[in-house]
């Protein structure tokens, strides 16, 4: 394919700005990657055409090209990620419509088996109204402890929602009858609210366990200590054993997220030993003395100082 921007757009060297824009728009309608999902060669051509357009619509660049100072690729536009890249890799398929094959259900057993599953994931027309999908971002602690929240919908109405304790990202709450009104006498569809749990500055979560990092001082690490630690539903106390290292994990049983059956996961407290801001002379002198007798190499597999 030619790299000459005039040829790419199909205009003459003397084309006016207006002619160039028109030519570009005509090609864009034909070649836009989002209107041709999956067609790599069209996307490549569109990229070249876009680059040609941005070169020729910039008077200075065009003049430089005409004088032969830059070549046709001189105005590479930054790599754009088109909508379809995101749409193709979106596991929830929330914008996807099944309208293009909904009628297959009647024509084939396998399609009715397969696509009949989706009453949770996809809205479909029957007598009852369509389901409406919402996504709601909830705070980490609301998701663990449960919360009541009022949703202000884009259409101005509101829904009262109870977020169950222990909710995870991806949890879908179904509000019966809060979707679109039915057709004829059909009942209203449901509102399906998918939860996304926002990250928390201190806590993270693995399954039903809550993980928190706990900085401890050098003396606490060596001598052991009882320390308060933030928990998802209030402050907790942990006993740091004598001789703790960074990375040691203390498990507080039953202090994690509710599992939904009355039991709870654990809270895991990951210790991190933090040195004092300044190493004073006394500490330094003591360590100098100490290591004469007690030096150890934690990089050896046995690792201990016993």
């Amino acid at each position: 394919m030619s790299d000459d921007p005039y040829e790419l757009l199909g205009v003459s060297k003397t084309a006016s700005v207006d002619e160039i824009r028109k030519a570009y728009r005509k090609l864009a309608k034909e070649l836009h990657p989002d209107l041709n999902p999956g067609d790599k060669s069209t996307e490549d051509r569109f990229k070249k055409v876009s680059a040609a357009h941005s070169l020729l619509s910039d008077a200075e660049q065009r003049a430089r090209f005409d004088r032969g100072e830059i070549d046709g690729s001189g105005a590479d536009t930054p790599q754009q990620r088109y909508y379809r890249h995101y749409a193709d890799s979106d596991p929830s398929g929330r914008y996807h419509s099944d309208a293009g094959y909904r009628d297959f259900e009647g024509a084939s057993d396998i399609f009715s088996d397969l696509f009949g599953r989706g009453s949770d994931g996809q809205a479909r027309f029957r007598a009852r109204g369509q389901n409406v999908h919402y996504r709601l971002v909830v705070s980490f602690l609301d998701a663990i402890n449960g919360a009541k929240q009022q949703l202000n919908l884009p259409d101005g109405s509101t829904i009262d929602l109870t977020i169950p304790a222990g909710s995870k990202s991806g949890t879908i709450l179904r509000l019966r009858g809060k979707g679109h009104p039915g057709l004829g006498d059909g009942p209203s569809g449901d509102a399906l609210v998918e939860l996304t749990v926002a990250p928390h500055a201190q806590f993270s979560r693995e399954g039903d366990d809550i993980i928190v990092e706990l900085p401890i001082s050098l003396d606490e690490a060596i001598l052991g200590a009882k320390i308060e630690v933030p928990g998802a539903s209030g402050r907790l106390r942990v006993t740091v054993p004598k001789g703790s290292s960074s990375g040691d994990v203390l498990r507080l049983r039953g202090k994690g997220a509710p599992k939904g059956d009355g039991r709870h996961g654990d809270q895991r407290v990951v210790l991190k030993v933090v040195m004092p801001n300044t190493i004073d002379d006394g500490l330094e002198a003591f360590m100098e003395e100490w290591r004469k007798e007690h030096a150890y190499n934690p990089r050896e597999t046995s690792g201990g100082n016993q």
Binding site: R135, V137, T196
Partner: peptide, 20 residues
Amino acid sequence: APAIGQSGPVFDELDVARVR
């Protein structure tokens, strides 16, 4: 169709690509 956040709509990259 952005997500509903505590202080207004919340858009992710898919939504932004769709706006574009």
